[in-house]
Amino acid sequence: MALEFRSVTKTFATTSGGEMTAVSDVSFRVDKGEFVSVVGPSGCGKSTILSMTAGLYQPTRGEVLVSEQPVNGPNAHVGFMLQKDLLLPWRSIISNIEFGLESRGVSKADRRARAMQELKACHLAGFENHYPYQLSGGMRQRAALARTLAIDPEIILLDEPFSALDAQTKLLLQNAFAKTISEAGKTTLLITHDLAEAVLMSDRILVLSERPGTVIAEIKVDLPHRDEPIKRRILPEVSEYAAQLFKYLKLEEKAA
């Protein structure tokens, strides 16, 4: 078991002194090498789930386990990526990719070698000495993925990494990510608003309710080409899965 949530509830103190429950009694498991997406209405606690997995804050009740170990704080098993690329603008791309390795006692030469390897895997060869502002949005997200992969995490957490990109770049990047991640054999948790994206990239999809978020459905995506969303895209079943998600999220009722 790569990741497990056991009846996790998280409440935040509000500024007015009250309490606000972001997620309530969330339980799920993710197997090693699995790609799982989380969809749900805005504000239902998706990012909160990600932050707890990364150990940035603790659940109020329940337990989060990564590789059978309870998560007590930031740990070396988890790498995360957000919609913002979070590249350090004052560092070159290669040095950005090395960033996560610096606090791990890896020698300078090894860091460079590992970073170069990931840079190539993410198709950024030749850009190692560029600065982030010289790259396009899509390239920057690839650099952020390279940085995430460089620390060789057991789990990759993705919080809407493609949502700021235009439709074409998005499609190409989804494809590149899917390939790279499946080649590396990484367990992945993807948070997304894009229902099609969830279907195209995942083995399994968790649907969360309105806040306080809780898992209301779990859909297994039984389609080939998980490592190539561009191929999966043309399968007729894709729209059926999306329609199913649509129904769970009650989007029609909301639109009415």
Binding site: A54, N75, F80, K84, L86, S103, R104
Partner: peptide, 13 residues
Amino acid sequence: DRDLINLARAYNL
């Protein structure tokens, strides 16, 4: 940026 600091924390700085 809080997210940058969280990133650094996640990397055990």
